[in-house]
Design a binder for these strands. Structure first.
Lengths: 125, 125, 125, 125
DNA sequence: GTGGTCTAGACCACC
DNA sequence: GTGGTCTAGACCACG
């Protein structure tokens, strides 16, 4: 489910965080289901438990998971998470559009990219 | 012209590189004009000359500037730079659109963002 | 394995880069094997860690190695590297042949050099 | 006759040296003919006289020219120069062939390069 | 004066 | 422990 890319320049814990976020947002990991324990996941991935510990801490800080002492870590409800992720993406879009405009990319070029990305289905909705 | 943000997690030299790239791509710094000397810019920004040296080296490596020992550093012609920067931005757009689609942002939401960014002028061109 | 020549006019970091490239291309250093740490190699060669750091950064930029914070630096797969190195050498050959021709060296003299270099084995293949 | 490339990373004096060597070896500048004065050449190329001074000194050191106090600088006879340049080139060829062999370039590939460089004329001499 | 290299020593993030 | 960034200060080559 999680694959570490050692050639990736980003720290391992960040890769773990991002991958778990992704699984949560896509609904693969369902709300209130339990995450593997720090030790187990560390063994599975053959990495240091401290690294998983840090990833889980980060995920908890951002509200993606919650921990119960002595029982383990669990997935949070994802409604608000999806909402804030959407907002984050739209904000990134705004920045990117600004940058694109400044360098001379046209409105049509961007709209074409959007249409490409969404395929032709429902183009006239 | 250049502002260092010490709260930014990115290294200083990278901030300097990005800012100068921006000034070059926007045409503020014209081809063959001279950049401030390593030492002067370092003093202006109150940072170590080595850090500027590194930023200039990076810019030279990417073809944004050229440096001549004993003479100084100068802006390169920027035709191809703008082109490759455009390609980079369009590639980022593709990634962002994919991510947006996956999380449930609609085609229309993105197109609206594009239209917002470009203002209402020429919307029906 | 690596020898610094202080009489060489080229900078130390460049000598280190070239030597390691050589070891990689010849297959002495195998893909995914670990390089000595920045500090260790610096001590071995009695030079400053920053100089090694710079050499490693250069090697990473060219795709010869990859470095991971907290873990170390490792050899990249070398297929494409050998290919591009071959192209580089053949290009140098073209230049050198042109220069040789201009100054009056004959075709036969060069071909003899090639045969000398390859030994007499298989000369008539 | 001489063109300075400011974008060339090599020092200016070196560019001047190389260009004059080339003109001498090709016979464009004939033995015992006079070179332009340091000042004149400096003015022609719009560069610092010190730079030309250094280039001439270098050329004299290598035996390409000789200076007569109060009269100027003159081209040396070029027989031995051509000879030693040939040797230099052949030595470079030896190195390059060695390098090529080590990385897996075949004898035939190199011989083809030589034949390409010399064109088809006289191939069977 | 200019850019470029190197050293010594510090601090950070990561594992 | 690892790599990466930054500072301070020195020296060199070049114009």
């Amino acid at each position: 489910m999680i694959i570490i890319d050692y050639k990736d320049r980003r720290p391992i814990y960040e890769q773990v965080v991002e991958r778990i976020q992704e699984l949560i947002l896509k609904g693969v990991l369902e709300p209130d289901s339990q995450l593997p324990s720090v030790r187990n996941l560390a063994m599975d991935l053959s990495i240091n438990p401290n690294t998983i510990q840090r990833a889980y801490a980060e995920l908890e800080r951002c509200g993606y998971i919650y921990s119960v002492k002595g029982r383990g870590s669990f997935i949070s409800a994802n409604h608000h998470l999806i909402q804030s992720k959407k907002e984050e993406i739209l904000e990134n879009a705004t920045k990117l559009i600004k940058e694109a405009k400044e360098i001379g990319i046209t409105r049509d070029q961007l709209i074409n990219k959007v249409n490409e990305g969404f395929g032709e289905e429902g183009k006239d909705d």
